[in-house]
Amino acid sequence: MQRKFSFEALFVKYCGVAAVVFSLGCLIVLLTVIFINGIPGLRLDFLTHFPSRFPAQAGIFSALIGTFWILVMTALFSIPLGVMTGIYLEELAKDNWVKRLIQVNIANLSGVPSVVYGILGLAVFVRFLGFDRSILSGALTMSLLILPIIIIATTEAIRAVPLSIRLAAFGVGASPRQVIWYHVLPEAMPGILTGVVLALSRAIGESAPLIMIGALSFVAFVPHHPLDSFTVLSIQIFNWVSRPQEAFHALASSAIVVLLGITLSMNVLAIYLRTRFVQRRGGD
């Protein structure tokens, strides 16, 4: 059937095309600007030097180590807490007002600005509990920040596990703990892992909460202990960008290349883990 030419039809369609092209264009411009400015400064001694007031000697060694500390400790706190909360909400909680209240609460927590978590961390971990401006305070603050993301990913992954798997397990006499531990969790693992890795990559990029708890931006030593003071990549970048000199902006763009490299490879890791699990369990 021959259709009449319609200006409106083309307009609606090409508005959509334009919007998608605009967004993709922003992404491409953003990455291009960063890589053009950042790649030239990316030498080995940039990775192994401490920050310095002389741009030529400055590096990101302490920031890299600090980022690693924050990443590992945040994972230690947030993964067990988030996954257990997700299990509780999906498998154990009765459908009543308490469950709905907790769900609304978690949805709202995920919308709280990161700087407010920073204020919480400053008041509770730094001052009240006396952990001072340490890695421990930073990791605890970051854990609270990404907890809602992990919980939501876990509940969604568990919800997607077919009912028949649970029924079969109960049918052969498994206890609730055994059903969850040996059947529901392994089945939900790809979804949970993807959520966890994405949440951790958010933790690596966040800087506002760590600035609030007073992470130092000039750290010329490597932290050895959870109670040591520290800096992370994103704060080092913030520090360099906020200086007026061009040379520091160039350092910032090299550090951004490293930061984006870590974040992007975590995303690739998430995809890899997901496909591996699907294969091992015989595919979907």
């Binding site: 990559s201 990029g205 966040e206 800087s207 506002a208 970048i237 902006h249 763009s253 974040t263 995303n267």
Partner: peptide, 11 residues
């Protein structure tokens, strides 16, 4: 676009 750290947008 949403996964890029916000400090990068500031830069």
């Amino acid at each position: 676009l949403a996964g890029i750290p916000t400090v990068v947008y500031g830069y």
